[in-house]
Amino acid sequence: MRFVVRSLLQLVLVLFAVTFVAFGALNYLGDPLFNILGPIALEESGPEYAEVRAEARAQFHLDDPFPVRYGRWVGDMLTGDFGRSYSNQVTVRSILADKLPVTVVLMVYAQVIAIAVSVPWALWTASRAYRFGDKASTVVSFTMLGIPVFALTVLLFWLFAIRWQIFPTRYEDETIGQRLTSLFLPAVALATPLIATYQRLLRTDLISTLQEDFISVARAKGLPKWYILFRHALRPSLFSLLTVFGIQVASLIGGSLVVERQFQIPGIGFEVVEAIFRDDFPVVLAVVVVVSVAFVAVNVLVDLIYTFLDPRVDFNG
């Protein structure tokens, strides 16, 4: 119980810090009235637009002090009201509802690929530590870590979508099969550095675990190698991987800005880039909030999984 309360407090603190900084930055970097009205927001446009300017200032409470505006915005946000896009007057909530699921699917897809590839790979290399296969894997994993996501995205796009036409060049969503197919390359682009990271971490922890006494006992009992790896070594070796898994949510979102644009995926990454170009601050702020909540929530979830992996872990203690 204490852990849940502490996690919630942590969430509130993170959200306060992030939203305060973001709201402040977006309000002081540029003129909000200009972003709402365009050129007629400026006094130079003439007195004939003075009434329009006054109405907009009143409607968006732009004459209120910053803390009041921030408080109002937070209050609205807590009721699910993120305001309207400056660009098209559509509610930000409906934009999020439209775009967020696509990005979530993409990130889950990337994580599934990353786990599906990295865990067997780490088990294989740990079981052959310091032999040729392990050393070759080290080279491969460092190569994967060294390729920036944007470069890999362009490379995959050109090779598999343009050159060989194995995958579509744009997002298609009429069927689940189409979604999974068209998201495969973007997910691989996002997953590639994760695969290498997870593999390196898990391999190291596994090698350490395989030297523990209880593994020696299992070996002495004549248990098969694969059984020892999966049943006895894997679970206690997952802590580092899990920790990084939570932290990587942020980097996945960062990567989605690039990947979604290249593959024309109508997700939150594509939207936030367009919103930044258009100075569409309500959308940018809402995305910041969503990302912050997701980041904290995933990391709380990771903490909970620690207790499942090792009952000795007690966050209430």
């Binding site: 036409q165 194995i166 579509p168 999974l180």
Partner: peptide, 9 residues
């Protein structure tokens, strides 16, 4: 598998 998933022209 990849060829089966991809859309040919």
């Amino acid at each position: 598998i990849a060829s089966a998933c991809g859309g040919g022209d």
